[in-house]
Amino acid sequence: MATQVMDKKAVATDEMTRYRRRARLQHVMQTAIPRLFLLIMCLIYAVPFYWMLSTALKSTSELAEFPPALFPRTLHFENFVLAVTKIPFAVYFGNTLLITLLTIIGSVLANLIVAYGFACIEWPGRDKVFYIVLATMFIPFPIAIVPQFDMFARLHWINTILPLVVPHFFAGAFFIFMLRQFLLQIPRELLEAARMDGATELQIMWNVILPLSRPALAAVALFSGISAWNDFMGPLIYLQDDLKRTLAVGLQVFRSTHDIQFNLLMAASLLTVLPLIILFLFSQRFFIKGVTVGSIK
């Protein structure tokens, strides 16, 4: 009897493990194609970064080798130290950080408010006005440079970060459009229910819409942050004081008229983009979690 029970149990567990193994196999099979695809794409997409890194670690004489070596023969970590000490890195870093943070705050707030106005309130003429938003995306950037500079010069804003930051507090077509598309996906019933409860539009925006649009707002923060951090033209023409400059402009020190100190330039560039990578990893959290719109309905 006892052995019979044992047998049955053994059979059962055996079947369980077999089932589990099959399930796991199925999962592996199902994810094999996406995995392979991602792996190949990652290999391609990682080349520029790898090249920057390997160049940053090479000695000057190794830069001239042909064909270029895939791995540096010896790792010259001192390039990073040299790169940082050749420019007032900490000062530039602080300037860039301030501009970037203010830009992110401005972009997220202003675009959320404006996009809410375009997506969550039904007002007559709304969609026609929205076409104007779209239209502004097609204005080529060079035509704005001169008139805007004139304006900021008249305001005595040259050599301050205001021309770089303030425009972001007035929202921009790209982000308005992006957020609008996301907000339009949110079920209208949610808005109506909140309005029935007597909530003001701002309350609805803050308490209902904001939590639901976190991935999109994370994207706004990320994109506006990256473009502010890497912006070259803006800081170049508006910040004329050496110590007010940003990293993107400061990197020019490694370029001369006829030559570039590539290893140092790459080392400094890597240190420059490091905070952006951190920003990305941080905002990634929001993309992973996603929203749980479906559960409300």
């Binding site: 301030l98 203010l102 707030l109 408010i113 804003w157 301050t160 970060i161 205001l162 930051v165 507090f169």
Partner: peptide, 16 residues
């Protein structure tokens, strides 16, 4: 939101 906005504006004006 606007409180933050106004504050930031003032702050950057000061900085400038």
């Amino acid at each position: 939101p606007y409180a933050v906005l106004v504050l930031v504006l003032l702050l950057s004006l000061l900085l400038g």
